[in-house]
Amino acid sequence: MTAIQDTAFARLDAEGRLLNSVLKAPTKKAGRFGFRGDIALKFQAKLADEARPPEISSDQVIAVAEAGSPHISFLTGFLLSFEYVKLLAEVLGDALSPSGVYILFCDNIDISKKYTMDYAGTTFVILPIDEATVYNELLELLYLEKGDLKKLDTAGKTDAIADKAASFKASFPKITYEEGLALMGPVRNLYENRPV
């Protein structure tokens, strides 16, 4: 049974960054640990012992790491702003691998554009999100049929996605982080137009 302490998730877990998990457990594949939830990128200042939600997070994360490996081999998630890619790379740090697959859905990227970006010694695939969930967008990107995954539990679905993502090769235009900052749109307020 793979323990989180034996994977690249150990430090993130110890720092209290793995939040709202629907999966934080070994998957069906021997030696693999899966995480589905949110990763806190920047914490709010704490007053006394109150628990506050993170100021900035990557939401709807799906990620896997193998026991004994210092790297997260696959990670996808939602970022409210492209600008937060830098923060994500800093938080993940040496858990990123040049051979890993990292697909980020950014809310303020033009809906018709897709990019790859080399940053912090690895390559990120930068995609817009079309009002759907990361899970749905990912299935479409990887040509996975929702019906085929229906009978699987969360760990099984995570394995199927990670296995398919391992062979994913992006041929999108390359941009630098600075070019991405210049291209990105305004950051949306997630709470506007919501009833109080």
Rank of each mutant, 00 (worst) to 15 (best):
A182P: 02
T116H: 07
T76L: 08
C106E: 06
N193P: 00
A132W: 01
G68D: 05
L190N: 06
P70S: 12
A95Q: 09
D6S: 12
V134S: 02
E178W: 00
I103A: 13
V134F: 05
S171K: 13
A30V: 14
S99Q: 11
P26E: 15
P53S: 14
E50I: 13
R194C: 00
L80M: 05
R11Q: 10
L144A: 08
V125L: 07
T122S: 13
E90W: 04
P26D: 09
P26K: 09
P70G: 06
A30R: 15
A25Y: 04
K114G: 06
A10C: 08
D148E: 15
V187F: 00
G156L: 10
A170M: 01
Q44H: 14
A3C: 01
V101I: 13
F172R: 08
P186F: 03
L47Y: 12
N193W: 03
A8D: 07
G93K: 10
P173M: 00
D107I: 01
L12P: 08
C106Y: 02
F33Y: 15
K86E: 15
T2Q: 02
G68Q: 06
I161G: 07
F82N: 07
E66V: 01
C106V: 12
A8I: 04
T176Q: 05
E145N: 06
L144E: 09
D153G: 08
A30H: 15
G77P: 05
R36V: 15
I111C: 03
F74H: 11
L80Y: 03
N193I: 00
T154K: 11
D38V: 07
L23E: 04
G31P: 12
K28M: 01
N189P: 00
E50M: 11
